[in-house]
Design a protein around this nucleic acid. Structure first.
Lengths: 246, 246
DNA sequence: CGACTTTTTGACCTAATTCAACTAATGTGG
DNA sequence: CCACATTAGTTGAATTAGGTCAAAAAGTCG
């Protein structure tokens, strides 16, 4: 099984075989979690750092008026909160969107890494910087773009990220999101998301069916979405490494 | 002159006199910068870490369609990008909103700190976590709240942050923002910002004039805004330390 | 005092929401 | 494997929040 986490870290900088082996060895204490489960809830003081090995998860927060805002999708290779150690409590929740395989990294493992594996530490540091940059881009997205552009921009981002961990098949990849989840991501109503998707579909830009997205022409979608991938800070922005290309 | 940076760091954890003295000593290489100047531009590879000693600045980004999204306000005591060292280039800009006094911290100073002053390092680490949490809260704001609530929520946040660095006078503080800047923050048109402000003013919740905001009843505004300050992770959420209270 | 920027207001338009109904999926227990 | 329940997706009609355009009033500043 190709390790998405390693692919992701190596999209920032190449790793030594030694570090790679260590990463594989620590990813063994894993758990299977069903869809729609909280991995960490707001207010928790989590002990472990979680690493998504398989499946989709999200960061989200509920407002006191009962609305939900999703502010990040976690895909295979993403991890939650190296830094959480410092904060007493989580100020948001992390929940699964699909069944996930999750690794639990103990504090001692994290400590061992930060003290003895500078390249890995740097790569993880990078990850959290990229998370921040992504959040800023989402803010631009919500603040400045219309519904269809907003949605298609998200699709471009997810395509890019899935490609970086080898989970795209050309312009197609798994996307287990309901329209309701999309609406909570985009600050739109479900109905309007539905209509916007229809518009994208009729323009031949994207089609979604049974938990999979198909982008017939990725470049065309990027142009449409005003998508500039530089905020993801991937080392190989253009060529990529597709499943199909292997 | 009370050092806002120290106030801010101490709102996370108390500092030793030694660390405090060191902070004062490093804040001496400063520069005065006029309003509406870029301190760092997108694409730069900045050498120094900047620290705002006085005045208002912002993080922002321009889209290819010429729109601007502001994603953070920097107030006295805030600093820009301890972490920027790792990223080759800035993916957004930082510009002044009012005349600012800015300290330039050289890489060697930062290095000295991270190696010899763990308490300070931890406090700065905290700052960047809080920046992240704030960004998430802004996303909730843009995604889930109507124009007037969105704006008033921002005012609550700024009040809380200004209070933490001793720059509020009861419910009033300096706020050198034009309505156009507010609109680029909130993802709204200037006209709509104007009308929303009128609504808030007529409800007796806030009034703005000559670069100052007055909140007659802070608690009432918080209730109106659904404002929960916990994301700012301040140690003293309630009492605060007002100019007027001293 | 002009030139310029910011704020305010009015009239009109459009994007997005709400409510409501209906259709397709998906799943569950018998 | 089917009947039923439940969730997800789709569509229409009416409404509203917010945008655009345009122009006037109020500040700011050399």
């Amino acid at each position: 099984m190709p390790n998405a986490f390693i692919s992701k870290l190596e999209s920032f900088e190449p790793l030594h075989a030694d570090d790679r082996a260590w990463l594989i060895s620590i990813s063994n204490r894993t758990r299977e979690v069903g869809a729609d489960q909280d991995l960490i809830s707001e207010g928790d003081n989590p002990e472990n750092v979680l690493l998504i090995l398989d499946g989709f998860a999200m960061r989200y927060k509920l407002t006191s008026t009962g609305r939900r805002q999703i502010f990040a999708y976690l895909i295979p290779g993403d991890f939650c909160d190296l830094h959480v150690a410092l904060l007493k409590t989580m100020d948001h929740s992390i929940g699964t969107l699909s069944p996930c395989r999750v690794a639990y990294l103990s504090p001692s493992i994290v400590l061992e890494m930060t003290e003895r594996r500078p390249a890995l530490t740097r790569a993880l540091w990078m990850c959290s910087l990229v998370d921040g940059a992504t959040l800023r881009e989402w803010l631009v997205n919500l603040g400045q773009r219309s519904a269809p552009h907003r949605i298609s921009h998200l699709f471009c981002e997810l395509h890019e990220r899935m490609k970086a961990v080898g989970l795209t098949d050309d312009g197609s990849f798994e996307l287990p999101l309901t329209q309701s989840e999309l609406s909570d991501t985009m600050g739109l109503s479900v109905v309007h998301v539905n209509r916007s998707l229809k518009e994208l579909r009729e323009a031949g830009l994207v089609s979604l069916r049974n938990e999979r997205i198909l982008i017939p022409n990725v470049q065309r979608l990027k142009d449409y979405s005003d998508f500039d991938p530089s905020y993801l800070h991937l080392r190989w922005p253009n060529p990529g490494r597709d499943v199909s290309a292997k």
